[in-house]
Write a protein that binds this DNA or RNA. Sequence first.
DNA 1: GCCATATAATATGGTGCCTAATTTTCGTCA
DNA 2: TGACGAAAATTAGGCACCATATTATATGGC
Lengths: 176, 176
Amino acid sequence: MEKRLEQKHRALLEEAERQSIAPTDNIRACFELLALTGAIDRDCAVRLARHRLSEGKFVLMFLLHDKPDGLSPHELAARAGVTRATITGLLDGLERDGFIARRAGLDDRRKIAVILTPVGQEMASDLFREHAQWVASLFEGFTVNERKTLSGLLQRVWRNLDAANRRLGPDVDGSG
Amino acid sequence: MEKRLEQKHRALLEEAERQSIAPTDNIRACFELLALTGAIDRDCAVRLARHRLSEGKFVLMFLLHDKPDGLSPHELAARAGVTRATITGLLDGLERDGFIARRAGLDDRRKIAVILTPVGQEMASDLFREHAQWVASLFEGFTVNERKTLSGLLQRVWRNLDAANRRLGPDVDGSG
DNA sequence: GCCATATAATATGGTGCCTAATTTTCGTCA
DNA sequence: TGACGAAAATTAGGCACCATATTATATGGC
């Protein structure tokens, strides 16, 4: 398995080769990218699961780790990039496991303040350090130039992605 | 937003910078990678959703598109890289939407054969062509060397990922 | 023929994410 | 003061994934 691809991607790629309907080197490149980040995500999940945490929960704890007065679910949603409804679910789990507490809002009673418990505090600090070191380790041995090269190539994929979206048209939600 | 990062990653990165506990350029590189594939996955989901399909369902339909005798859920699970239980759910949706049919097995009555309906057949062909072209378009403008460079850099991340896993130890499932 | 065991598919229940409704509260305006 | 719209959190319902039962079928040993 020199070039790692997931099963599903491998099948698609082979078929594209067989039908030769698109540049298969490009497809391969895309799947290599997808397979790698898929693996990173999986490993990340495994690491976090050892502490009864998911990535979403970890981000919330991280967001709270230096906020003694807490943040509202609304703010957490904005900073974590998920909806408020999702935050509610994550908070339920974190509260059940004793990592956070919900406090009634003082000035605005619609808001609640989410704060880390002492247990949560400790977990957050340890985990953040561990996690950051792991993430950094993935690019161990890369020179400045190599990182720049990678970044530049990725930027170009971004642009192609945007271009494809523009071709699709802005009115995507047509219920047809 | 020149270097696109998701909210959550941006926050982690800034904190890592503040605490300087790990090489933040590496962390940034990792997050750029994650953000890009996150965007690709999202766009992919949007494209497929226009046809009432998810990525998982698309892969199943693709796997079936040249198998007139069908495949069993077991085989589909193996080739798609998900569990049989997941396949059951995906097939339920595909059957409800009229894309596939379940046929009782002939030789082994525990097995069932999943086949595409004519509607499913047509959908699968169209979609495969469209999807392959979209995926290929993401690397439009890349030279052979650029693709090689990218692939090589990605391979090195794979190796770092493996190394990190080895450091974590093989006995990861300890119920601690 | 009958039992133990293996295998196929599904059911159940959990997680994380979503969108859309719903409830509570706030602020404003008449 | 009361009505109304906006905002905060939650609930409800859906999807995709998982692990772990559960049920039906097959197979080998006796």
